[in-house]
Amino acid sequence: MPIEIPKDKWPGSIKAVTIGATAAEGGTRAKSITIGGQNTMPYLQFEKPTPNTPVIAIEIKSRKPEDWSPLLEKPWGEAMADPAEWAKKAEAAGADLLVLALTLEDTPDSAVKTVKAVLAASGLPLVVWGPGQAEKDNELLVPVAEAAKGEKVVLGVCEDKNYRTIVATAMANGHLVEARTPMDVNLAKQLNILISDMGLPMDRIVMDPTTGALGYGIEYGYSVMERLRLAALQGDAMTQLPMMVTPGFEAWKAKESKVGEGVPEAWGDWEARAVNWETLTAMALVESGADVVVLRHPESVKRVKAAIGELMAA
């Protein structure tokens, strides 16, 4: 007698969220991207097909980062000093989505200029991050949101302590927001509630439950993502959002990627190890339910993209 394959039937599913708008949708993107929509744990296609392919974003910055590993300068080179060029190169490297990180040196004018330049240089949907200081984020993201009206950009990052201005400007200009919480299911849920309480529809929120790099707390991020997905499938509406995580940022902060000298010999070749660090961090998160992984090295992008392709093909 054939075995009955155990299939979970879940009452809930993840909301489908669309990022970016084409000319027909009121923007100028070459295409928009839809993520989410799943009704199973990640890639369990024998239960139900995964409706939307998880995507890879490449992180670029508004000005050449000082603290990035020299290993990242190799592939990106001169383009790192020119966000528009960098955007083109990232698109060529296989990005589905661009993350443009503004910096503390940016002014509202420079931020708007850079965002416009990046939108002009690449047809990919865009995520824009403030530099990560509440006041500065708000100062930059409000004019950026107005300048990019209609493009359905993801504005980030909303955190417990600073979300209201970003959400307000997203509402006024038709954008989405990234809601980041520090590796905790209930905090993630709470922030989603707070944001949707302000009136932003749920299908315009992407949640970022935060993660750690391999060796630096990835197990917390991994389990929180599995739990968020489970809660969502069980019907908890406030967790039914696609997830976006930043393995690139985390992995390239780790000593294993950052440092080439004075480290144990057992760590092996620096460059290969660094790419492995980013790739494996991303892979573990893809397996635990990431819908967007933000990466930095083109080689990792290639490998993770191939892996997602295989997972989707089953």
Partner: peptide, 20 residues
Amino acid sequence: FVPENVYPLLVLRENIYTDP
């Protein structure tokens, strides 16, 4: 056996198998 491949896997295994 390639150290730069083995090391990340050993760490990943440790992380996933850590008692929460």
